[in-house]
C-alpha cells in the first residue's frame, strides 16, 4: 500500500463515518457541523486526487459559506428534527440493491488516473499541450474554465445569480401572501397584515351581519381546503429530514 493509497483509505473511512453520523443525529446543529466536516474531508480527498481547484472550492463553499447559511436557517426554524415515523428498512434495502447493481455496473470503468483512459486521450491532452501556447495561462483549469469553456462558466454565474433571485423572491421581501381559512371561506391575505388588522377587517366586512370574529379566530394556513382533499401531501410533517 502506497502512502497515497493509505491516505485515500483513511479519508474515505472518515467520509463514511461523517456521512453516517449526519444521517443518525437528530440534532440539526450537529448535523450542520458534521456536514461542514464532510465537505472538509472531501476537500482533502480532492487534494489527494490532484484536483486542487475543486478542493479549494469545496473548502470555501461547502465547509465555509454553506455552513453559515445552514446555521442561519437553523436560527429560523429550530434545531430539533422530528422522529421519523417509518422504519428505514425498506429504503435501506432499496439503497443496498441499487448500490450493489451500480457497483457491478461500473466495475468496468477505466481505472482512476491511468494515462491511457479515454478521458485522458482526447480533449484533455490538447488542453495540457496547447493551452499555454494559445492563452499563456499557466493554470490549465483556469484557461479551460474561463476561456475554452467560458460559456459554461457564464452559465454557472447565471445559476448563482438565479439562486439569489429565488431566495430573495421568497425571503427578502416580507412574508408571502397567505390563504387563510376564515368563517368557512378561503381568502387571500396580503403580507404584512397583522392579526389585529385582520380582525378589524373582518369586523368591518361583517358589520350588521352580527358577531364579527375574535382576533384569535383567524387560523393562518391551517388545514387544507375542504373541497380540495387529496392535494395536501400526506404525511409530509412526519417525513421532514
Amino acid at each position: 500500500m502506497t502512502p497515497v493509497e493509505f491516505v485515500d483509505i483513511v479519508l474515505l473511512i472518515l467520509l463514511a463515518i461523517t456521512g453516517i453520523a449526519v444521517i443518525r443525529t437528530r440534532n440539526l446543529f450537529a448535523a450542520v457541523m458534521l456536514a461542514g466536516i464532510y465537505s472538509l474531508v472531501s476537500a482533502g480527498l480532492f487534494v489527494v486526487m490532484d484536483a486542487v481547484d475543486v478542493a479549494f472550492t469545496e473548502a470555501a463553499v461547502g465547509a465555509g459559506i454553506s455552513t453559515v447559511l445552514l446555521l442561519g436557517t437553523l436560527a429560523l426554524v429550530g434545531d430539533k428534527e422530528h422522529k421519523p415515523q417509518h422504519t428505514p428498512i425498506l429504503p435501506l434495502i432499496v439503497v443496498l440493491i441499487t448500490g450493489g447493481v451500480l457497483i457491478y455496473g461500473t466495475s468496468q470503468m477505466p481505472p482512476f488516473g491511468a494515462a491511457d483512459n479515454p478521458a485522458n486521450q482526447h480533449v484533455a491532452p490538447y488542453y495540457l499541450e496547447d493551452s499555454y501556447d494559445e492563452t499563456h495561462v499557466p493554470n490549465v483549469v483556469t484557461s479551460v474554465l474561463a476561456s475554452y469553456r467560458s460559456y459554461d462558466t457564464m452559465g454557472e454565474t447565471a445559476v448563482v445569480f438565479t439562486a439569489v433571485v429565488g431566495v430573495l423572491l421568497l425571503l427578502a421581501r416580507g412574508p408571502l401572501p397567505q390563504r387563510i381559512h376564515h368563517d368557512g371561506e378561503w381568502i387571500t391575505v396580503r403580507p404584512g397584515t397583522t392579526r389585529e388588522e385582520l380582525a378589524a377587517q373582518f369586523k368591518a366586512e361583517t358589520e350588521g351581519g352580527g358577531g364579527g370574529p375574535e382576533g384569535g379566530g383567524v387560523d393562518p394556513g391551517g388545514g387544507a381546503d375542504p373541497e380540495d382533499r387529496g392535494d395536501t401531501p400526506s404525511g409530509e410533517g412526519g417525513e421532514r429530514g
Binding site: D152, G155, E156, V159, T162, V165, G166, L169, L176, R179
Partner: peptide, 26 residues
C-alpha cells in the same frame, strides 16, 4: 452535454422560485 446541465440548472432554479410564488400555501 455539460452545457445542457448548466442551463438545465438555470431553468430549473428559476422555475422553482416562480412556482413558490403561488398564492396558495401549498
Amino acid at each position: 452535454v455539460f452545457n445542457v446541465f448548466v442551463f438545465l440548472e438555470i431553468s430549473s432554479l428559476s422555475a422553482y422560485s416562480m412556482i413558490a410564488l403561488g398564492q396558495d400555501r401549498r
